[in-house]
């Protein structure tokens, strides 16, 4: 591929190639603080290719490919190249990673313990993690929490945070412009802007910590907190894991340990400020 970059995010290394310079330039800028891969051996390859030779110049459309592909992935506009690159990395991770149990969840750390937040797209887990990451918590990731199969530790996967629609303005107001990616307007998920985690969070991306609390946040509802039973938690986490089935018995052991040891709460909240106050209160109570 003409334009290339190799990125290491937590334990995973990605070799990214693109037919166009734009997406790689965005990655270079936003991942500037990330340490270089140690040995140059990548776990995954992500390629951003033109849909056809002509479409490289004419209304350029990106097709995402790599080691693991989805047959029906729709081509994307070159203007959304950074999103394509990020989606490509997510896809490789979701379909190919076997070294940890992958939970579709955001995670933040404080006092050496991890708060894990899982929920559907739009639940507010990404925005809440991003906001906590600016308020004394260490952002470990907004998309995947990696659960160590042996120790039960949560490992960071601090990719760029993908902010959607209303969440964009909330974060732009409190983060320096250098850490924000370009506005990608009108994607399939609405407007998207990426946020690079703080340099101190990136510097500690190899440092895991034990999970202390699991939250199921839900944005847009009156404040409420209710305990979630272990059975429901287990079921929701198997649905939130992309590799639970593939891991077999070690995955079962890791997930049952997590569910048995980590208290789980559903948290409804009407606004970001309210959510942050609720999380801080819950965190104090868990100590």
């Amino acid at each position: 591929m003409k334009h290339r970059i190799t990125l290491r995010i937590g334990p995973a290394t990605f070799r990214m190639g693109s037919a166009w310079p734009g997406p790689i330039r965005s990655l270079e800028r936003l991942y500037a603080d990330y340490p270089a891969p140690a040995d140059g051996i990548a776990d995954f390859t992500v390629r951003l290719e033109p849909v056809s030779l002509l479409r490289r110049w004419l209304r350029p459309s990106i097709f995402i490919t790599g080691d693991h592909g989805l047959a029906d992935a729709a081509p994307m506009s070159l203007a959304h190249g950074l999103l394509a690159a990020e989606m490509g990395m997510n896809l490789q991770m979701a379909l190919g990673w076997r070294r940890h149990l992958l939970l579709h969840a955001s995670s933040v750390e404080k006092d050496g313990r991890v708060l894990v937040m899982t929920g559907e797209s739009g639940s507010g887990k990404s925005t809440l993690a991003a906001q906590l990451g600016e308020r004394g918590w260490r952002l470990m990731g907004d998309e995947f929490a990696l659960l160590d199969l042996e120790t039960g530790t949560v490992l960071p996967f601090p990719r760029l945070v993908s902010l959607k629609n209303r969440a964009i303005d909330v974060i732009v107001a409190e983060v320096p412009a250098a850490r924000m990616g370009p506005l990608l307007a009108g994607t399939a998920k609405g407007d998207i802007r990426h946020l690079a985690p703080r340099a101190d969070a990136v510097a500690r991306m190899d440092e895991g910590a034990p999970p202390a609390l699991l939250l199921f946040p839900r944005f847009g509802h009156a404040p409420a907190i209710r305990p979630v039973g272990q059975g429901e938690t287990f079921m929701r986490l198997t649905q939130a894991s992309t590799n639970y089935v593939a891991l077999g018995e070690p995955g079962f052991a890791a997930l049952t340990r997590f569910v048995t040891q980590v208290p789980a709460l559903a948290m409804d909240f009407p606004s970001g400020e309210e959510a942050i106050a609720m999380v801080e209160r819950l965190w104090e109570q868990q100590r």
Binding site: G229, Q230, G231, E232, F234, M235, T238, V245, G248, E249, F252, T256, V259, T260
Partner: peptide, 22 residues
């Protein structure tokens, strides 16, 4: 292989790799 949770029992079925919640 089974694991008892507070409100149900999980069974991991080795030969099929399936998890049953009972």
């Amino acid at each position: 292989m089974s694991h008892i949770l507070d409100d149900m029992v999980l069974l991991y079925h080795r030969s099929s790799g399936q998890t049953h919640m009972v």
